[in-house]
Computed example of a mutant assay.
Amino acid sequence: MASVHPTSTPSIAVRPRRRALAPLEPVRAQSRWLLGIGFFILFFAAWAFFTLGGYVSPTFLASPVTMVQEAILLFTEFNFMFDIGMTIWRVLAGFILASLIAVPLGIAMGAHKGVEAFLEPFVSFCRYLPASAFIPLLILWAGIGELQKVLVIFIGSVFQIVLMVAVCVGAARRDLVEAAYTLGANPAGIVKRVLIPGAAPEIAEILRLVLGWAWTYVIVAELIGSSSGIGHMITDSQALLNTGQIIFGIIVIGLIGLVSDFAFKALNRRLFAWSSL
């Protein structure tokens, strides 16, 4: 008598439902924009509520309306566009100078352990020194002109870039290096054709992050001995207790930094389209 086996049903993999607040769950680009803009709306609404409602004295915190009025005054009567241009120039000059020196040094440290052993203690020591502490010395060495301000940004950026690039290059995959040696590459070719191309997307991301730090150093550089720039305007406004202009100067720095960050991201995606960054 033939035995009858029950019909087996194929197992179907069931994808779990996506949950909006699940850990590491991706967010659509449109939702990301809406959420980001929504936070700014809530922030300005709370600011307006406490200032326009009389809960905070205008001496300590200007209202959004007052800030807009002061912003118009800055552009129409105090040539604030010139101050913005000077600040952007100082940031770019100090950051580009730091990048031109720090990136090759970082690549050398990451690629050659002897160079790393020689330079890392000094670079690590300098990385913890605040850039503002150098201002008295820089004034003695370079005066109170543009060079002093550029050097503050340079000192604040260069040591960070060196170490971060060194770590990035030093983390290269050993199997790729060994494969290149097997194919006949020499040490210089390893650096040029394996280490640098492999680390290039991450180096670009490091530069994007450090550019954001450079914007914090420029205000410190402009607080002393400066006759132009956003930091100079903030200092003058503080002496007059004009919180509207102070807040607007801070917001302008944030907006310029945000635009430069998005521009850096777009450039990185264009240059390294094959990377996941």
Rank of each mutant, 00 (worst) to 15 (best):
L176T: 05
A199S: 15
R17H: 07
V158L: 00
W89A: 11
F82T: 03
I153Q: 12
L100M: 11
K265C: 01
W89N: 09
I253S: 07
V115G: 03
A263V: 11
L137C: 02
W33M: 15
A20F: 09
L119Q: 03
A273Y: 13
A185G: 08
E70V: 01
F264N: 06
G53K: 06
S276R: 13
L140C: 08
F154W: 06
L119N: 01
V150N: 03
F82R: 10
L42Q: 00
I190T: 11
A22G: 08
D236G: 08
G249N: 09
A188S: 13
I250M: 15
A214I: 04
I96N: 07
V14S: 09
D175C: 03
I135L: 14
W33P: 01
I256C: 15
S157Y: 04
L241M: 09
I161V: 10
N79P: 03
S276T: 08
L277F: 05
L147Y: 07
I190Q: 11
P16A: 14
V56Y: 05
S276D: 12
W141A: 08
L183T: 04
P58F: 09
A133P: 04
M1K: 11
L271S: 10
S276M: 08
Q245Y: 07
I256L: 15
V4L: 10
F272I: 01
F75E: 06
L137Q: 03
I84N: 00
P130G: 04
F122W: 03
V210G: 14
V259L: 15
G143E: 04
S63H: 10
G257M: 02
D83N: 14
L140K: 02
L209Q: 10
V218Y: 04
A2L: 06
S3A: 12
R32Y: 11
A221V: 04
L35C: 06
A239D: 02
F122D: 00
Q30G: 08
A131W: 03
L176Y: 15
S3H: 13
I135Y: 13
L255H: 01
I234M: 15
F125L: 00
P197Q: 08
T182G: 12
F118T: 06
F272M: 02
S226Q: 10
A131K: 05
G143S: 07
